[in-house]
Design a protein around this nucleic acid. Structure first.
Lengths: 133, 133
DNA sequence: ATTTTTGCAAAACATTTGCAGACAG
DNA sequence: CTGTCTGCAAATGTTTTGCAAAAAT
């Protein structure tokens, strides 16, 4: 008997946060944003709702190494496929519009290997930080 | 007064582990390997030595999202530039020999942005896991 | 000798889980 | 009503720190 899913204001709120998000979000950011809407929401609930959304495929986990929060989440359909740019000065994350990847990734692995997916992060300075030293 | 660095068997041992490593290592792997050599080594020491090696630039931190241990370390000079393949079945990590990246990454970011580095992980099945279903 | 490094234990964080009550359907 | 979801607190798991003893120079 698979448990039936219910809609709660906590879950709805977090879903809306992801709808409006401009980049991948860390747990503490989600918690802070959700707290404004649903006062008294528990951190454990944030973890549970986010985990549930990942399981249902609505959002997915992404890693932004060396960021303030390495583990982040974003909507699965934000783009069919996209990557991230991380500014090493202001610590903000931006979405790339294009994929800089070679066409057939299977050419880059050993024979017999099969590539299904990939994850890429670029590092550097964003337009704002690049100007001012 | 900058603290002067000293050589200890714990540090030497961990450095040797990285010399002989074939792929990026997680803390628990390093701890297990080091324990064979230096019996009684403390986990805190592993964290401290690894942290020190990162600070000195000898090794660097890499993230392999969705692996058993997301946070791993490898020698900075293992290759001037290389990436990883992660088998989603056996959870092993392999090094790529070539970089599948476009030549000028600056063409893929917004005007004013400057790309300094990038990190890539491919996912799929390794030769061994690909055969047997 | 002097100072860094170690191992242990405690502390600080991060994430997960048990449970009784609140809430959705 | 029935069973899921929430918030809290306790439990886990991971990484960091304080400190006295051990080790390096």
């Amino acid at each position: 008997m698979k448990p039936q899913v219910r809609n709660t204001k906590q879950k709805t709120c977090i879903q809306k946060i992801f709808q409006e998000a401009i980049g991948p979000l860390g747990i503490s950011e989600i918690y802070a944003l959700a707290s404004k809407d649903v006062k008294g929401i528990g951190l454990a609930t944030v973890y549970r709702v986010v985990g549930g959304l990942v399981d249902s495929g609505e959002i997915k986990k992404v890693n932004i190494p060396n960021a303030v929060e390495d583990v982040r989440y974003e909507r699965s359909d934000t783009a069919l496929h996209h990557h991230h740019f991380f500014c090493t000065k202001c610590n903000k994350t931006f979405d790339l519009t294009k994929c800089p990847m070679a066409s057939d990734l299977n050419k880059f692995v050993l024979p017999g290997f099969k590539v299904d997916a990939h994850e890429l992060t670029l590092y550097g300075l964003c337009a704002n930080c690049h100007g001012k030293k």
